[in-house]
Design a binder for these strands. Sequence first.
DNA 1: TATGAATGAGTATTCATTCAT
DNA 2: GATGAATGAATACTCATTCAT
Lengths: 226, 226, 226, 226
Amino acid sequence: MSTVLKQQDDTPGELAVETVSRRPQQGRSKASLERMLNTARELMVERGSEEFTLQEVSQRGKVSIGSIYLRFESKDNLVRAVIGNALEQIAAEEDAMLAGVKAKSRSLADFIPRYVEDYAEVLKENAPLLRLAMQRAEIDPQVSAPGKRSAFRSQEISTNAMLEYREEFGGDDHEIKANAAFQIIFSALARQLSLGSLRESVHDYNWELHKRELGRMALAYLKADI
Amino acid sequence: MSTVLKQQDDTPGELAVETVSRRPQQGRSKASLERMLNTARELMVERGSEEFTLQEVSQRGKVSIGSIYLRFESKDNLVRAVIGNALEQIAAEEDAMLAGVKAKSRSLADFIPRYVEDYAEVLKENAPLLRLAMQRAEIDPQVSAPGKRSAFRSQEISTNAMLEYREEFGGDDHEIKANAAFQIIFSALARQLSLGSLRESVHDYNWELHKRELGRMALAYLKADI
Amino acid sequence: MSTVLKQQDDTPGELAVETVSRRPQQGRSKASLERMLNTARELMVERGSEEFTLQEVSQRGKVSIGSIYLRFESKDNLVRAVIGNALEQIAAEEDAMLAGVKAKSRSLADFIPRYVEDYAEVLKENAPLLRLAMQRAEIDPQVSAPGKRSAFRSQEISTNAMLEYREEFGGDDHEIKANAAFQIIFSALARQLSLGSLRESVHDYNWELHKRELGRMALAYLKADI
Amino acid sequence: MSTVLKQQDDTPGELAVETVSRRPQQGRSKASLERMLNTARELMVERGSEEFTLQEVSQRGKVSIGSIYLRFESKDNLVRAVIGNALEQIAAEEDAMLAGVKAKSRSLADFIPRYVEDYAEVLKENAPLLRLAMQRAEIDPQVSAPGKRSAFRSQEISTNAMLEYREEFGGDDHEIKANAAFQIIFSALARQLSLGSLRESVHDYNWELHKRELGRMALAYLKADI
DNA sequence: TATGAATGAGTATTCATTCAT
DNA sequence: GATGAATGAATACTCATTCAT
């Protein structure tokens, strides 16, 4: 895979398989498409990087190399499709998660800890691919564009959910507070999940504790009259 | 550079040049060692990745390829040395930064915002290599081990500094609060600097604003009677 | 298309579609056969080479790849058929051209300049495919054999036409003169049109003889008071 | 070797090994350079085309693939170097040939047949590579440019040699006659040797003029009492 | 008969590492 | 010690041909 990423021909900025893949799939050959995507995802998760060969996808996934190129213009596009799928799935999980949390919560004090808890679960589940998506976004505009859209959307729906409890907020600018809260929460969770890594789980700093304190912090901040 | 990272022969877990490099250097050849390390660092920073060739280091740095292999067992080890140096330098800068901040601060309310501000500067300065260090730590135990030590040290000294103002803390468990505060602060700064990327600069979420709110949040949290 | 050209199974040495193609065609599928031949010819003329893919023929010509293999044993045979068709068409054009020139000419001095002029037109018209035919004849016996036959025929009818004015010839061996004249004319035209080889050593036209006559011709020309 | 020919970085239009190759060679490694050039030339002559693999050059020529890329930026450049060498050698042989022929000839009638004879020998000797050079010139500007220069030079020195006997010429425009004579002689020899195109439209030699003179030549020859 | 999805052998190129000088 | 030329394994991608439907 070349250092210089190969641009896609059509609408740039979309990663959905229908866009990145060469033709809409039906029936039998859908299975083959599935197999190559799954195998590629497996290898990416296993290795924590895009350093797999198409040879490997071919053998492990029982798909011929030619087949891969029948669906994807390049290895880069295959990788993009895997990432695109993951982003889509995460978005769906976020929606479901938020709906669930909102249903159970009567107050901000109900909502925030549950939200932190459940959002952490969603991210944890998808951490390996999310990590790769982030890494790649740094250098591939074709991933960074939809990546940002996806991030924007997360922030939007999370912030809106918080703002449903705005009469409980302290201070004036509720939007700023909600956005900052989202940012801090996401940052902290992301770091904890090595979404941008290093100091990861430094000396067993407790994950459960971390989440609890994070929730408390956000709550105190949001309620504070600063 | 192979996918499977080559283990070092001697004590694993140290990145200091004296460890990663093959022999202690003096005089003339010290200059050559310096040149290869500097050139490699330059290339890594320029590219934002380890995708440079030894050919390039050789030409740009006026060092023969043979020389490089005389000092380093492999390209991997050269990269590790660069990262090791960077971690050491960052540690020194953190020390200096903390000393400065403490000297100027009479209260927690003095300390926290200055700390956030100046720590952000230190990280920003070193972001490119820190990013690489984090990326690599994910897959290379030889980087992740000293990386963790370095992170541990940062947390230690930062936390201790905060605890010098512990009588101003609210709540009971001051250690937990200080550690959580450090975690949250570092997470948020790291994300903002793309140290672990993606959602980076989503719709111009303001850097100055972010830092201010982060400081307020930490302060409110620390002072809160939760 | 492999370097080593695949031999045809049946009678080698013929390129007519009926020979190179797998089965005689009628009605509806005749149109499809036409489409693949035309598309292949188009691509060959456009590129000036055989570097087109069957995929391209399939898409541009609205013919399935399977259809092509139903008519032709291999891509090589498709190419041969295109060349065979072109050679046939050129032969027909040569016949018509000669008839026209002869009808208008009353003497050798009438005939020769017209012949040169009109033959040049015929060759120019068909230059792109003729060029390919010649190139391929060099390495593919299945093209060189009918190519030679076709060249032989051209020389035959051209020479015979000249010999209708033999009483105007100087010297003794009129056949030799006529043949040499044809060779020189064709060579010069071919070179001017970048045609290249083909008719190489057509039926043992003697090399030593050729060189002697070439010298004489140049000499006569150079010394002539025209 | 890609359809789209890779352009050279430095001065375009020269094929001498010193230009096409990556670095000046001396001593030991000169032998290796020689081996790869010879092996490539052998394969090109054997196959009558550029369809050899670097694998083959590596094995047959006892040179590692890496070595080839040490000297040549691409397979295309290796091919160009082989062709460039051949063109240079031919130029030298032409010079020697012309000197020899002139030394032996006292009149145009002496000169022309010897020239035809000896030039034929030079071309015959180098036919295989010349054929390839011409083929490639058609599509590769980096070969066609020096190819034309080389052709121009041939025409220049041959024409000048003929013109040393200009007082024996008939007619008026001796330059035109000499040039036409060269063209016809070269064309005929080239065709006989299956050389193909190259010298195409060397310095705008006029097509209409060429045809007129061609007719005159044929006519003079046919009517001559030789 | 007709289709076009699937196959996989084949090839140019890169670059970490070695080793003769 | 120091050099940098030589090595060759490894890898993305193409396209003629096959064959299940």
